[in-house]
């Protein structure tokens, strides 16, 4: 073996312990906190997304009481649809895809943040407990008018 200075050994142990604590914290927040990253959803043919399937007529669909799914087609350079109303207290599962190039999707004030690729469906679920407006925008470079790609989710007071 090799000689390691006493202080340097302590430093290395402290670094190892710190990293182990971080890993534990990650696991705890992901599992207990229920933080969800996009995963394997489904593949889709980009040439036909605009003409057939759920992305041909995208929008909000009710699945049950307070439960919705929202299909958004993200294309150069617009969201279809770009304004969506949901009642407060809903849980919404987002499904996005692109018929052309790569895009990004971030909804202000939520954990809905994902990349949107042609050929893949990106899916995540979020709750909207309170009335208000959440802007969303594209955060993956998609061409010369990338900066105008935005829209909003309006959470209406529950009736």
């Amino acid at each position: 073996m090799m000689h390691v200075d006493r202080y340097e050994r302590r430093w290395m142990i402290a670094t190892g312990v710190t990293l182990a604590v971080f890993i534990l914290a990650l696991a705890v927040t992901a599992v207990i906190g229920g933080i969800e990253l996009p995963g394997v959803s489904e593949r889709i043919a980009p040439s036909t997304v605009s003409t057939s399937g759920p992305f041909a007529n995208p929008g909000l669909r009710q699945l049950g009481p307070g439960r919705y799914e929202l299909f958004i087609r993200e294309q150069t350079w617009a969201f279809v649809p770009n304004e969506v109303h949901v009642p407060a207290g809903s849980s919404v599962t987002f499904h996005l895809t692109s018929p052309d190039v790569q895009h990004g999707f971030y909804v202000e004030g939520t954990n809905i943040h994902m990349m949107v690729l042609p050929g893949q469906v990106s899916s995540l679920t979020a709750a909207f407990p309170r009335p208000g407006t959440h802007q969303f925008w594209c955060d993956e470079y998609c061409g010369i008018a990338h900066q105008i790609m935005s829209g909003k989710i309006v959470v209406d007071p529950a009736r």
Partner: peptide
């Protein structure tokens, strides 16, 4: 690629570690 579709979150976690 944490926010990419089509890759399992388990593999993403392995790379995070």
């Amino acid at each position: 690629q944490f926010l990419d579709p089509g890759i399992s979150p388990a593999w993403k976690a392995v790379h995070a570690f």
